[in-house]
């Protein structure tokens, strides 16, 4: 037996056999559950990776449109507004909020974007020239950032799921390849030990029975001898005959009882 050494350190008793059997059952249920979880997660994971792939490509396009609208601003304002924008940024109008979504017991965070009201750092930008383009550019970029936030959610989900799936798969494999075989080995071991004990017990009982038989036989012989001696001494024919008949029947009954005890 290859896994003879790989078993749990238990005393081979009936109680631990029961425990092991329950454990094996638990491990099997757990295994199938985890397997299903891993499958569900992997399904989700594949879906997310596909969407990331798409979204990343789409992002290229969205950002191009956004850059073009910035170019439009530069065109209309007739200069670079970058520095002014950087300096007038004070408080974020566009913020994100993280939510959690439950996928097969895994909490996946998703980002949600929202815009705070009445908080406009750039309302005056391009007042004399290009203000309309600036506002439009803001809208275009806000849309682009929304797309980016969505992509970021996907990516976070991707990273977390990746991690979780690895853990789950590790557990599935551990149960499948380590815990279940080990428990099975333990059960086998306990069974074989118990059988061994049984065989010893049987042999022992047999020995006991043999000895008893021998003892009874010896006792009988002695009784017989004593009776014969008494017969000789008493020499009374009637009483002796009755005693001789009861003697052998008793012995038979004893032997039968003993046999019954041996076979169980």
């Amino acid at each position: 037996m290859s896994g003879a050494a790989d078993r749990e350190a238990v005393f081979p008793t009936r109680q631990s056999l029961g425990l092991m059997k329950a454990k094996l059952k638990g491990a099997e249920t757990g295994h199938s559950l985890l397997k299903r979880k891993s499958e569900a997660l992997t399904k989700r994971f594949r879906e997310i990776t596909r969407r990331i792939d798409e979204a990343k490509r789409k992002m290229g396009r969205v950002m191009q449109i956004a850059s073009l609208s910035l170019a439009e601003v530069t065109y209309a304002v007739g200069g670079n507004i970058g520095y002014q924008i950087q300096e007038s940024a004070k408080s974020a109008r566009f913020r994100i909020r993280a939510k959690q979504e439950n996928v097969s017991g895994v909490l996946l965070p998703t980002f949600e974007s929202y815009q705070t009201e009445g908080n406009n750092d750039f309302a005056m930008t391009g007042l004399g020239k290009g203000g309309q383009q600036v506002q439009r550019c803001r809208e275009t970029y806000a849309r682009a950032v929304e797309a980016l936030v969505e992509l970021a959610s996907l990516q976070t989900a991707f990273v977390i799921l990746d991690e979780v799936i690895k853990v789950v798969n590790r557990r599935v494999n551990a149960i499948e390849h380590v815990i279940i075989p080990r428990t099975e080995n333990t059960i086998k071991y306990i069974n074989s030990e118990l059988d061994e004990l049984d065989r010893e017990e049987f042999y022992r009982l047999k020995k006991v029975a043999n000895k008893k038989q021998r003892d009874t036989a010896a006792g009988d012989a002695e009784m017989k001898k004593k009776k014969e001696e008494q017969d000789k001494v008493d020499a009374s024919g009637q009483e002796n005959k009755e005693q001789e008949e009861t003697g052998p029947t008793d012995i038979l009954a004893d032997a039968a009882a003993e046999d019954e005890d041996v076979i169980f």
Partner: peptide, 23 residues
């Protein structure tokens, strides 16, 4: 052009009409 642009761009900002006129 500036007058028209300033007017159009000032809609929805805190620039008051009196201040706008000064521009």
């Amino acid at each position: 052009r500036r007058a028209i642009n300033i007017t159009l761009n000032s809609f929805g900002t805190e620039l008051s009409k009196a201040d706008r006129k000064k521009l």
